[in-house]
Design a protein around this nucleic acid. Structure first.
Lengths: 221, 221
DNA sequence: ATAATTTTCGTACGCTGTACCAATGAGGCT
DNA sequence: AGCCTCATTGGTACAGCGTACGAAAATTAT
């Protein structure tokens, strides 16, 4: 008689984390409980604890898993190109895993993939001639922007081009009586325009930041 | 015989939210449970439900409470000065309530204080002559930077000037064998320098962003 | 075949949010 | 005075959470 255990791919720390990511993607981070995770893997709750010490380790693990999806920048490449590419890669990855943004704040034990990612990014800036100071400034600035944008994107009730209109306009009607005229203005004249996609705002800020860093890097030479 | 209820300030939605903020500040957002909150107010769990529908409403409420602490920008003031002031106010408020950063991502129902804050900020930019488009760009950029910086600050295991050194150096020693040379370099030559405070990085990025926006606003004239 | 070891999981405990309903207390009415 | 009404308070209970503990089962080594 085949048992449940013999009918499925063998458990492992890797598989636990992979399934945890998949479950969080599908059903949200709140649905990621030990019980549902075990169930989705065809096993029982306590079996997972052979591979991870506790749930926190799972959360740390899936954050690192997300970082491991992001292609590393090339230190010998053109810094601006590499940083722009990296920014877009990080953003799109965080959009695929919106729950990761919320975890960033609470996890202070970076995993190996996270460290490798940081290292490669720093190396790209330093190799391009950025001073240690400017590298630190640039990195804090770029990551703040990317993370913050991801936070805002995750909080939006809509996603992708034009979907804003359908969601926003009924809400908006309550506001037209005048308490928030500037918000209404932005909504009507910008957000509700056909083809609007909040994601497009990302490029504007990114260009502005990279331009500024270019200038700083030039001054320092 | 005085009952528990007659011995304390009367309950109210306001007081529930105030105490929830205080409790989250003192003991972290995880310690904010209905039971601990009720206990801290000298009442019993179910009594709170007369004033709030459920815990989510409390979380929405305390996020709005945090926004209500932030002084509004003045639409008739110099935009750059106002935006710089606002940025610092938001950051310092989020530093006082680090748990709020994590909630921003999951709450998509902004309260009245939040809306007022957004409205005043948008008004300041529009009054200064920013186009609707540029206002939207600028706002997304500024808030992304501020929120993202707050996320990073909340994730740091240290806080304030010089405290980084004490925490970081023992960790660092494990790294000196060479897998992460650039990170070590940044740490040794920047973070571990006396007087270092991650918070100071904020001004660098803020200046860079405001400079960039200045240029954009100028071009548009 | 037996022993040793790795892997799986059943049970139970103290926590959580909150549904449901009973007790309490204050104010207005006759 | 007595009574009624309704806002307020909280007791009890339930399902679901993370996980400690230890037993069962499966696998590997001898």
């Amino acid at each position: 008689m085949p048992t449940a255990a013999s009918q499925r791919p063998p458990l492992s720390r890797e598989r636990v984390l992979e399934c945890a990511v998949a479950l969080a993607d599908e059903s949200g981070i709140d649905a990621l409980t030990i019980r549902t995770l075990a169930h989705s893997m065809g096993t029982k709750p306590m079996s997972l604890y052979y591979y991870v010490a506790n749930k926190d380790e799972i959360l740390d693990g899936i954050v690192d898993m997300v970082f491991s999806e992001i292609e590393l920048p090339a230190p010998e490449g053109d810094w601006r190109e590499e940083m722009e590419l990296r920014a877009h890669r990080v953003r799109s990855t965080l959009r695929r895993h919106p729950w990761a943004v919320g975890l960033l704040e609470s996890r202070s034990a970076p995993g190996p993939a996270t460290l490798r990612h940081h290292e490669a990014t720093l190396a790209t800036l330093r190799t391009a001639g950025f001073s240690v100071q400017l590298t630190a400034h640039a990195y804090a600035l770029l990551d703040s922007y990317i993370y913050g944008f991801a936070v805002q994107e995750a909080a939006l009730p809509f996603e992708g081009p034009d979907t804003a209109a359908a969601i926003t306009s009924p809400i908006l009607e309550r506001f037209t009586t005048g308490e928030y005229p500037r918000m209404v203005e932005i909504a009507v004249e910008h957000v509700l325009k056909p083809g609007y996609d909040f994601g497009d705002e990302f490029q504007f800020g990114l260009d502005l930041i990279l331009d500024g860093l270019s200038r700083q890097a030039g001054d320092a030479d």
